[in-house]
Measured scan of single mutants.
Amino acid sequence: MASQGTKRSYEQMETDGERQNATEIRASVGKMIDGIGRFYIQMCTELKLSDYEGRLIQNSLTIERMVLSAFDERRNKYLEEHPSAGKDPKKTGGPIYKRVDRKWMRELVLYDKEEIRRIWRQANNGDDATAGLTHMMIWHSNLNDTTYQRTRALVRTGMDPRMCSLMQGSTLPRRSGAAGAAVKGVGTMVMELIRMIKRGINDRNFWRGENGRKTRSAYERMCNILKGKFQTAAQRAMMDQVRESRNPGNAEIEDLIFLARSALILRGSVAHKSCLPACVYGPAVASGYDFEKEGYSLVGIDPFKLLQNSQVYSLIRPNENPAHKSQLVWMACNSAAFEDLRVLSFIRGTKVSPRGKLSTRGVQIASNENMDAMESSTLELRSRYWAIRTRSGGNTNQQRASAGQISVQPAFSVQRNLPFDKPTIMAAFTGNTEGRTSDMRAEIIRMMEGAKPEEMSFQGRGVFELSDERAANPIVPSFDMSNEGSYFFGDNAEEYDN
Results as ranks from 00 to 15, higher is better:
residue 200 G to E: 12
residue 137 M to I: 13
residue 179 A to R: 01
residue 434 E to Y: 03
residue 132 G to N: 09
residue 447 M to D: 02
residue 317 R to L: 03
residue 363 V to E: 08
residue 289 Y to T: 05
residue 423 P to L: 01
residue 27 A to Y: 04
residue 171 T to K: 04
residue 313 Y to R: 07
residue 1 M to Y: 11
residue 209 G to D: 11
residue 416 R to H: 14
residue 450 G to A: 07
residue 65 R to F: 08
residue 182 A to V: 09
residue 218 A to E: 02
residue 147 T to K: 09
residue 418 L to T: 07
residue 339 E to R: 00
residue 311 Q to G: 03
residue 307 L to I: 08
residue 403 A to I: 01
residue 328 L to G: 04
residue 50 S to N: 07
residue 139 W to Q: 08
residue 27 A to V: 14
residue 289 Y to Q: 05
residue 286 A to T: 09
residue 165 S to M: 13
residue 95 P to T: 05
residue 4 Q to A: 07
residue 266 L to P: 00
residue 491 D to T: 03
residue 25 I to S: 02
residue 107 E to N: 13
residue 169 G to F: 05
residue 65 R to Y: 01
residue 431 G to Q: 14
residue 393 G to E: 09
residue 357 K to S: 03
residue 9 S to A: 15
residue 112 D to F: 03
residue 143 L to R: 07
residue 485 G to P: 00
residue 315 L to H: 07
residue 238 M to E: 09
residue 283 P to I: 12
residue 75 R to C: 04
residue 375 E to R: 01
residue 272 H to P: 02
residue 353 S to T: 12
residue 103 K to Q: 04
residue 294 E to L: 09
residue 307 L to R: 05
residue 36 I to L: 11
residue 7 K to D: 00
residue 181 A to L: 08
residue 427 A to V: 09
residue 235 Q to K: 13
residue 435 G to Y: 07
residue 350 T to P: 00
residue 441 R to G: 03
residue 88 D to G: 02
residue 83 P to R: 09
residue 482 S to W: 00
residue 379 L to N: 13
residue 386 W to T: 08
residue 263 A to S: 14
residue 177 G to F: 12
residue 122 Q to S: 05
residue 339 E to H: 05
residue 74 R to P: 07
residue 206 F to M: 11
residue 232 T to M: 07
residue 491 D to N: 13
residue 127 D to I: 11
residue 455 E to V: 11
residue 162 R to Q: 07
residue 83 P to I: 05
residue 412 F to H: 06
residue 258 F to I: 05
residue 171 T to C: 15
residue 2 A to C: 00
residue 27 A to Q: 14
residue 151 T to L: 05
residue 288 G to A: 13
residue 82 H to G: 00
residue 468 D to T: 14
residue 85 A to F: 03
residue 19 R to H: 10
residue 3 S to V: 02
residue 20 Q to M: 03
residue 280 V to P: 07
residue 93 G to Q: 12
residue 421 D to N: 14
residue 88 D to A: 00
residue 18 E to I: 13
residue 19 R to Y: 05
residue 388 I to F: 01
residue 477 P to V: 00
residue 216 R to G: 05
residue 433 T to M: 13
residue 291 F to V: 09
residue 40 Y to R: 13
residue 296 Y to C: 11
residue 79 L to H: 05
residue 439 D to G: 01
residue 374 M to R: 02
residue 13 M to F: 03
residue 436 R to C: 01
residue 459 Q to F: 11
residue 11 E to A: 07
residue 21 N to P: 10
residue 223 C to T: 14
residue 178 A to F: 00
residue 374 M to A: 05
residue 375 E to S: 12
residue 308 Q to L: 14
residue 424 T to A: 14
residue 21 N to D: 03
residue 295 G to M: 10
residue 432 N to Q: 14
residue 375 E to C: 14
residue 195 R to L: 08
residue 440 M to T: 04
residue 42 Q to W: 05
residue 189 M to R: 00
residue 411 A to H: 01
residue 32 M to E: 05
residue 483 N to D: 08
residue 92 T to G: 12
residue 329 V to W: 09
residue 115 E to T: 03
residue 423 P to M: 04
residue 253 I to P: 02
residue 342 R to C: 07
residue 197 I to K: 06
residue 174 R to S: 07
residue 275 C to R: 08
residue 109 V to N: 01
residue 365 I to H: 09
